[in-house]
Simulated assay, not measured.
Amino acid sequence: MRFRRLVAPVLLALAATLALPAVPASAALPTYDHIVVLIEENHSAAEVIGSASAPYLTSLATNGANMTQSYAVTHPSEPNYLALYSGSTQGLTDDSCPHTYSGENLGHQLLAAGRSFAGYSQTMPSAGYTGCTYGRYARKHNPWVNFTNVPASANLRFADFPTSYANLPKLSFVVPDLCYDMHDCSVSTGDTWVKNNLGAYATWAKANNSLLVVTFDEDDRSAGNKIPTIFSGAHVATGTYSERITHYTVLRTLESLTGVGCTGNSCAVSPVSDIWN
């Protein structure tokens, strides 16, 4: 009798535990060796994803995480670059140049945490260049050059982009020039540039614990500022994802993936957490 009295409560507790519904574990964000963020220009999601003019970017979206409700923060271009990079438009409402800021930003966050960072701008004439324009290069599309707490050594030409991808920084941005970012040239021209210049990295990333993020600064003012945003690489669960995100969400995701704190308006949003496997 005494044995039964001792065992019965244990069995009841066990049965109650087994009857509880399973609580799914929170999805953990992966830790990448390398992340490359590509910024293209001035086209809505509908003009790119699924378009015959953009077969390569469409293939990235089809075989990666296609964020179907991704929105830029504002118009015109420059405030969006600042939002994506620093969590704030810095009060800017135009594409003027030059500007100097001293606040927190993703590049400084990474360097302060002992992680590597660089921005690669096509057609920029020299590393550390601070001029507003040079040929088809535009400083308005290069936010890191504006911040005094990011060294000139992080402001690189796309010609400096490593051919051995294992030598890439922890996180880097790639900004094509005014033709190949689709600002002045066609979607097809930009799509071909991405394939020819980052397609090999995109393939390499999947097998080498790395990630490619493709996003746009803004739409062409035709679609409520809905823009393409794609995550492609290792640990990405293929699919379409319909949660609303903005440049601030992408920034918060990059911060979380690299283990640094949030900054500015990225602190008011959560990172993308449902696309990882």
Score class of each variant (00 low, 15 high):
V145N: 08
D191T: 04
P176N: 07
Q122S: 04
Y134A: 15
D191R: 03
I245H: 11
A166D: 13
L171F: 01
C132W: 12
R157D: 02
N142R: 08
T130Q: 15
R157V: 02
I227N: 11
I230Y: 11
L168S: 11
V23K: 13
Q109S: 13
G114E: 10
G261M: 06
V260C: 13
S232N: 14
T123D: 15
F231Y: 15
H247S: 12
R221E: 14
C97Q: 10
G91H: 07
E40L: 15
V150Y: 06
A61L: 09
A166G: 12
H183C: 01
A25N: 06
A159P: 00
C262W: 01
S88D: 13
Y201E: 07
V37L: 14
P24L: 10
D181G: 09
D94C: 04
S164N: 14
G190L: 11
G239A: 04
A166V: 08
A61M: 10
P24C: 06
I275G: 08
T133A: 12
S164H: 01
L254A: 03
A200N: 11
W204S: 07
A152Y: 02
T89H: 06
I35M: 03
A27W: 01
T17A: 13
Y101Q: 07
H99W: 12
P271A: 13
A54E: 11
E78W: 01
A200V: 00
L20M: 14
F158C: 04
S186H: 01
W204P: 09
R157K: 15
Y81L: 14
G199P: 00
A113I: 04
P30G: 09
A54I: 04
W144M: 12
L6I: 10
F147C: 04
D160Y: 04
V174Y: 12
G199K: 02
N225L: 06
S44M: 02
P228T: 10
V174C: 05
Y241I: 10
A8G: 01
G261P: 03
D191M: 05
T58S: 15
